[in-house]
Design a binder for these strands. Sequence first.
DNA 1: TGTAGTATAATTGTATACATTCATACAAAG
DNA 2: CTTTGTATGAATGTATACAATTATACTACA
Lengths: 216, 216
Amino acid sequence: MIIEHKSISLAEQVFDRLETDILSGKYQPGEVLTELKLVGDLGVSRTPIREALRRLEQEHIIEMTPRGILILGVSQKDLEDILEIRTRIEGLAAYMAAQNITDEQLEELRETVELQEFYVPKHDADRINVMDSKFHLLIYRFSGSVPLYDTLMPLHKKVLKYRRASVENEVRSAYSSQEHRAIFEAIAAHDAPLAEKYMMEHIANAKDYIQKKGNH
Amino acid sequence: MIIEHKSISLAEQVFDRLETDILSGKYQPGEVLTELKLVGDLGVSRTPIREALRRLEQEHIIEMTPRGILILGVSQKDLEDILEIRTRIEGLAAYMAAQNITDEQLEELRETVELQEFYVPKHDADRINVMDSKFHLLIYRFSGSVPLYDTLMPLHKKVLKYRRASVENEVRSAYSSQEHRAIFEAIAAHDAPLAEKYMMEHIANAKDYIQKKGNH
DNA sequence: TGTAGTATAATTGTATACATTCATACAAAG
DNA sequence: CTTTGTATGAATGTATACAATTATACTACA
């Protein structure tokens, strides 16, 4: 087997690093950075940093101002809107995946579901989180639609900080895993409408849980 | 009244220019450009050009390769997927706009609808196109949701080349104008579910028209 | 004649130098 | 004491210089 060693540019690495740091909450909304500070922190020149910043600005998670880089992050209102949007189109991804998925892809999806089921009773939040996230990302990919993938991916990533909380709750975590199983079975049966229905319910449930939590 | 003279950076201008040129079909899919060629064409250095290219790459309408900039554009398959996605979430934008729109914003939307109605019988395709596009963009904005705006905007822009064809057809153009009127009236009445229903039908109709045209 | 190796030139990737902008503070005038 | 003008410096915006990569063509060898 040939391993492709695609060398990732610094600009790309910086983008991934900053995006994660912002969406995970390491940099807080309202905080102001400077390019010079990032040069010191990341050890690369301003050029790749700026290329990354432009992309982050396009995603509306930072704003480049004359005084520095303003961290915007994801607000509670943003989060609600994002889950409302995902409720409507992530079902479409499940629908298309049910139509287009190959046997090989199906096995990859099955393994992800089963690993999540394996970690849930062990309360291994980190690994549950990885599998939970991977399940959704695989469905985006297996939908076979680049525009749908491109649309869902940034929305998915922006829920990072809040998804973590769901995964740490034992009750929600168990339900979530069951919902993934139901979606998987529908996709495996190539029952597109059912896969869509289950996925829409799954996102709606996640939305309800996060909102309930937000209103303490 | 204070006029804000926000000076737009070269990077931003280059992005807008290249995006339009690619999505309008001036650069054809498969074509390969180089940064040096763009330096000559646009009269700016590589730095702002590269910042723009990174954003275009993120939108998947170009690909930066070691041999140059590969133009991807928007395929027929992409277009179908995009309209399927828009069918599902542009209704949400209309729904939210019906809830959140102010009287002042309502007048701006009304003027857009009425100007479109004014130009349709005159067969002024350019101006019809501008108003048609503006109608949708205003609703994105008046929805009051930044994530929804950010999600819909790139999808809307990618239909540019194909929307033009719809506008030039007298029958579809007249229907489209009527559909905008119906959506507007529902929003004006703050009837969110109705606004959503009409918008979904409107996008579905546009999709049907474009697909019928594509299958000649 | 075919194939593997290698030189090369064109292109992107990165770093740095220079230009411009703009918030801030401070001083002067009313 | 308020307000307006202006100097200043820190930051982004832009241009250019340098490094690394890679497809291509050519050469040498089997």
